[in-house]
Design a protein around this nucleic acid. Structure first.
Lengths: 172, 172
DNA sequence: GGAAGATACTTAACATGTTAAGTGAATGCG
DNA sequence: CGCATTCACTTAACATGTTAAGTATCTTCC
């Protein structure tokens, strides 16, 4: 209510706009980005108070659910790329929130699990986190939330197996 | 079809899982993240071929639509934080894809616009970008896409004015 | 008209995203 | 066995996300 899309009356050159494209602000990636940011904005302050970032929290939650996992599986679950996960695990281990051990059977692997300290930290964050999620659900509507998540899942499915290399089909 | 969620039959310690929480993989932030990644995965290769990142492309598109804007307005439009935008603009200017000039009336401001070179680059990327978007629309369904975006917009709206400071209400 | 406060950016510092390369440890196979 | 491949991670390098400071520049208001 305080600002408008820039006063159009300062024009000195003719509009550039020669490239026809969808209205930029209505692109799907943008909609998804804005929605996600609106949601995360609610959680960040609470996480921050507990000294956790969004990704660190994702990892702890994944570990609490999976108990003990190898790094690759954890990456898939927490939806993080290997390099990011590698760094974060190093830090979480330094803070004693997780534990790792290398199985003798395969020295390449590294089994990760949450520590007692990590469990306690989670317990201290969970209530506030759940409360925020409940408030979001209340505001947006529980059934709409379910519906939205279904659509997001369908979107993901309908794009599964499109870009990139596709594992193994017509190699090259 | 090649991997499963890790063989559960290697258990050595009793499940930790003492902190009750929603199923992690079904949290709203995660759903949004996964969906967005599924979409962006389609665009990144094409952008990359043209030497652009996702954010740089957002900025160029915003500039093509807005013609000439100040940095703050551009940040709002391209949905980038000031510091990120500042860095990217420095690089885009060095590559002569944008132009800046400081209005005499207010030396604090910086008016940004896309350059001829920038317009040409956009023209070379747009076709492929549009084709990808069309394919996504085809796969997911045009009407469902519209519906999804409406829901995302509603979600954003329903959370507008929740967290953080809220501009000016009960200052402290 | 001059100091305090607000603005519009920019820098800095640290964490993550993203791609490519590196490292050590299994595996496959002649 | 021996060597090329594949695996599971980790490092490296560069770009962005995020928060806090810093820097001019403009506005207010006495």
């Amino acid at each position: 209510m305080t600002k408008r899309p820039a006063d159009p009356a300062n024009g000195s050159e003719p509009a550039v706009r020669q490239v026809p494209m969808r209205d930029f602000s209505r692109s799907l990636p943008m909609s998804l980005l804005r929605a996600r940011e609106a949601v995360m904005r609610q959680f960040r302050p609470s996480l921050r108070e507990h000294g956790l970032t969004e990704q660190q929290w994702r990892i702890l939650r994944a570990l609490a659910a999976l108990d003990t996992v190898e790094v690759t599986e954890l990456a898939r679950t927490a939806f993080l790329l290997g390099p990011s996960l590698s760094r974060i695990l190093r830090d979480l281990e330094a803070r004693s929130l997780i534990e790792r051990k290398t199985p003798k059977a395969d020295q390449r692997r590294s089994m990760v699990s949450i520590s007692e300290k990590g469990v306690k930290l989670m317990a201290s964050v969970a209530p506030s986190s759940e409360a925020i999620y409940a408030e979001i659900t209340r505001r947006f509507g529980a059934s709409k939330l379910v519906e939205l998540q279904e659509m997001l899942g369908e979107l993901e499915l309908s794009l599964a197996g499109l870009g990139a290399s596709e594992e193994a089909s017509a190699e090259e």
